[in-house]
Design a protein around this nucleic acid. Structure first.
Lengths: 127, 127
DNA sequence: GTCCTACTTCAAGTCGGCTTGAGGTCAAGT
DNA sequence: ACTTGACCTCAAGCCGACTTGAAGTAGGAC
């Protein structure tokens, strides 16, 4: 069966029902049909939710996600925007990688004069 | 001079004065002294702001940043937490890197059946 | 001395992203 | 027939992170 109820979606995605309804209202996801009042989703919604989750982690707003992907999970035909978002993401990733390194360094380095440590200061120059 | 007024901080950091006051109220930054009512900051606040900015980009809340770094910008002595945050960040970075690749792929790949494309689906398995 | 400009406080408002609660629907079980 | 449980709608509320606005202050130029 590739059709599931909202409870199943909650169970398998970890996303609360209230959020699913909200996402639907915002046009981020859609249910294939209704069975009485109850929403019936395609299992594909699980992938779409995963996608939305990653985008949210990446710092994109629901509005941006809506622009990047149609509610069926397909990327927007606007290639320029997708490429631009990829570049944005690339910049973010580089900053985060520096910060990760610095956090690790901070966790290891006992120096109280940490702000003077060149390893730590790299990240600040980047931002 | 390593002491600057709030206007100078705004000019050099791009962070609005209202936000600076809010950050001070939340304990994220401090001014070295007051001159009358006016805050006087050390230039070091610019680095702290950069740090806060990166942390925000990384998805950390002000509360978390407060726990990770004292208002002088030094990392928390809680090494375990810093290491944990680094790991968190690492996982985030990996997801974002996949997503970046996928966005680039989506920008290039004309297939409408994009959700079926293995390149694109990788990211979803990760999340 | 008074005007300007840069600053201040404090309370209230805004915005995104949900969550909560009251009250209703519907199919299945006893 | 009635209860239970899973679902529904719709309006209101909440939280984090700020922003805005009204009213005040402090120092310098004229």
């Amino acid at each position: 069966m590739d059709e599931i109820g909202i409870g199943e979606v909650v169970r398998r995605s970890g996303v609360p029902a209230s959020t699913l309804r909200y996402y639907e209202e915002r046009g981020l996801i859609t249910c294939v049909r209704r069975q009485g009042l109850a929403r019936v989703f395609s299992v594909a919604v699980l992938e779409q939710l995963a996608l939305i989750g990653v985008c949210r982690t990446a710092g994109f707003s629901l509005e941006e996600i809506l622009l990047m992907f149609s509610p069926d999970g397909r990327p927007s035909p606007n290639r320029e925007m997708l490429a631009a978002k990829a570049d944005e993401l690339d910049a973010t990733i580089r900053k985060l990688a520096l910060m990760r390194d610095d956090l690790r360094h901070a966790a290891a380095c006992p120096a109280p004069t940490h702000m003077e440590c060149p390893t730590f200061r790299r990240v600040l120059g980047q931002a």
